[in-house]
């Protein structure tokens, strides 16, 4: 008797679930904390709408530096993180703050600077000697200074080159990539940027030029991960998982692959096909 009741209940539930449309107004939004580069470059505006349409989820994008994004994840202020600081991400997962980290895509960092190129770094294949030249010529270098993924990479590069940057030539802006590029443009300075943001802003930066690229130290990997649902009760973990699934799906990866600005690819898909 009891068994029949459960079976009936399950059947009713199943029927109800099939007639309930996938798009439900009651879906809670997914809070995506991400780096400024994915948002500034315009990628998210291509990647997210089809997801929202198919699943009925709304995605609230909070574009901040990677450091802040990770911190928001730790504090339960975001459900899912799309960031680019591989070592920190692994540490984040190992500490139990996040789960289900997946590679998403990669692009590369580049060093841009003024046309005059006083530090003579154009064409160098080695990022470290480029930085050394900049340091020696005391040309202005604009740093993100905001603990973002790009900033972390920049500090790592200086460290690798054995230089402690500081002094009046080293300007810490503390702002997003787009703003830092503008500052470099105005101050005739060098800066480290992700290729995506550079391509998106290049047209408005007539005095800046791509000078160094191709060093494997400049490789820039983006990962996505969900915030550990065990830590906070009110996380939208299901939504987070659906989003991760979408971003790493064939469809999502195709959108990334096909996203171009001025005929240049910004990001290269990295997720293993499911």
């Amino acid at each position: 008797m009891r068994n029949v009741f459960i079976k009936t209940f399950a059947l009713v539930a199943l029927v109800l679930s099939t007639i309930t449309p996938p798009v439900s107004a009651a879906q809670r939004p997914i809070r995506l904390a991400t780096t400024t580069s994915t948002d500034n470059s315009g990628l998210l505006r291509q990647l997210l709408p089809p997801f929202e349409e198919q699943t009925g989820y709304k995605v609230h994008v909070i574009a901040v530096g990677t450091g802040k994004a990770l911190r928001m994840g730790r504090d339960g202020d975001a459900d899912v993180l799309l960031v680019h600081a591989y070592d920190d991400e692994i540490r984040f997962v190992n500490a139990g703050y996040g789960v289900n980290r997946r590679d998403v895509m990669y692009n590369d960092f580049i060093i841009v600077g003024p046309e005059s190129d006083e530090a003579k770094i154009q064409g160098l294949k080695d990022a470290l000697s480029a930085l050394t030249n900049i340091r020696q010529s005391k040309s202005a270098f604009v740093s993100r200074g905001d603990d973002s993924g790009t900033h972390k990479r920049e500090r790592w590069l200086w460290q690798q080159a054995g230089i402690t940057p500081g002094g009046s030539w080293y300007r810490e802006a503390g702002q997003g990539m787009g703003k830092v590029l503008q500052i470099a443009e105005e101050l005739d300075g060098y800066t480290l940027t992700d290729r995506g943001t550079w391509l998106a802003h290049k047209a408005t930066l007539p005095h800046l030029k791509l000078l160094v690229a191709g060093d494997e130290r400049l490789y820039n990997r983006y990962g996505i991960l969900a915030v550990n649902p065990k830590r906070f009760a009110d996380l939208n973990f299901q939504g987070a998982m659906r989003l991760i699934e979408w971003v790493t799906s064939q469809q999502g990866q195709d959108i990334i692959k096909n996203y171009k600005i001025n005929n240049e690819i910004l990001f290269f898909p990295l997720a293993a096909p499911p």
Partner: peptide
């Protein structure tokens, strides 16, 4: 000003930045 450390970062822009960094 552009909020550049030791140059154009003043009290108010620093507060804005520190909050965005989570510090």
């Amino acid at each position: 000003g552009g909020n550049i450390l030791n140059y154009t970062r003043n009290i108010t822009t620093a507060i804005a930045l520190e909050t965005s960094k989570g510090q």
